[in-house]
Amino acid sequence: MTDDSAGAAEGGGSRPHPDEPHHAGLSTRLNWLRAAVLGANDGIVSTAGLVVGVAGATDSRAALLTAGLAGLMAGSLSMAAGEYVSVSTQRDSEQAALALEREELATTPQAELDELTGLLEERGISHDLAREVAEQMTARDALGAHARVELGIDPDELANPWHAAWASFISFTVGALLPLLAIVLPPRDWRLGVTVLSVLAALSACGWISARLGNAPVRPAVLRNMAGGAIAMAVTYAVGALLGAAGV
């Protein structure tokens, strides 16, 4: 439902103040920000697990750098490709649903008006008011009204697959750079400790940001994030140490 119609249905036609946090587009921006944080988190954990595992088998800076860069590029490209395919599929489905709705509005407008009225009634609006709101919404933007109320789609904010792909690529790369630099820049004896501490600190920050964005408890989110990263590094280091000791 559009802002104007929502106001008419719930508050006698009043419109929300532009500074209120639920204005149009806020949900979309939060979803993108949350996805970026999760992408960075994936980059941190996967690359940290990779370089720590290699560090368990060898202390060669060249080997660590090669493995880290390979993991960074493979992970970021995989994330970008997966996000592009996923969002493209979603966008195709949304466009097909909008095309069908556009055809139905052109061929059976009265039935569509009745349907919109019924959907508004299901949200707790009386029949007479629902009919009035449906008529006003249809007169203003019939396709937009049906897309939002019936399909749950905002036709003006369809996801862009290229934006999603680049966002995933960049966020994963930024996250992956931290463990990569932490394992290759310090002196040999400090590498593992610096990497583990840096990764745990970064995962703590990612957990905190994710929790705040989702209005969830911060402590459990931070602890889960740090525990997952610590387990990943411990397991891969053990595997690398075993392979290194075996001379593989």
Rank of each mutant, 00 (worst) to 15 (best):
L129W: 01
L129M: 03
A130G: 10
A130C: 11
A130T: 08
R131E: 10
V133W: 01
A134T: 01
E135T: 13
E135F: 07
E135W: 05
E135H: 09
E135R: 14
Q136Y: 07
Q136H: 14
Q136D: 15
Q136L: 14
M137E: 14
M137S: 15
M137F: 03
M137H: 02
T138N: 15
A139K: 02
A139D: 09
R140K: 13
D141Y: 08
D141M: 09
A142H: 09
A142K: 03
A142N: 04
L143N: 06
L143R: 08
L143Q: 08
L143T: 08
G144R: 02
G144V: 04
H146N: 04
H146V: 01
A147C: 04
R148G: 07
R148T: 10
R148Y: 09
R148W: 09
V149G: 06
E150K: 02
L151T: 02
L151C: 04
G152S: 13
G152I: 12
G152N: 13
G152T: 11
I153G: 07
D154Q: 15
D154F: 10
D154E: 15
D154R: 12
D154C: 13
P155T: 10
D156W: 08
D156E: 15
D156Y: 10
E157F: 11
L158F: 13
L158M: 14
L158Y: 11
A159V: 12
A159Q: 14
A159N: 11
A159T: 15
N160Y: 09
N160Q: 12
N160S: 15
N160M: 09
P161L: 06
W162L: 14
A164I: 04
A164L: 05
A164N: 05
A165G: 04
A165R: 00
A165D: 01
A165Q: 01
W166Q: 04
W166S: 05
A167N: 02
A167T: 02
A167I: 01
S168I: 05
S168R: 02
S168V: 05
S168T: 07
S168M: 07
S168E: 02
S168P: 05
F169Q: 00
F169A: 01
F169V: 02
F169G: 00
I170R: 06
I170H: 05
I170P: 02
I170K: 07
S171I: 13
S171Y: 09
S171L: 14
F172E: 01
F172V: 13
F172L: 12
F172M: 09
T173R: 03
T173V: 08
T173M: 09
T173K: 04
V174H: 00
G175L: 11
G175R: 06
G175Q: 11
A176T: 04
A176S: 15
A176K: 03
L177S: 12
P179L: 10
P179K: 09
L180Q: 10
L180N: 09
L180Y: 08
L180E: 07
L181A: 05
L181P: 00
L181H: 01
A182H: 08
A182C: 10
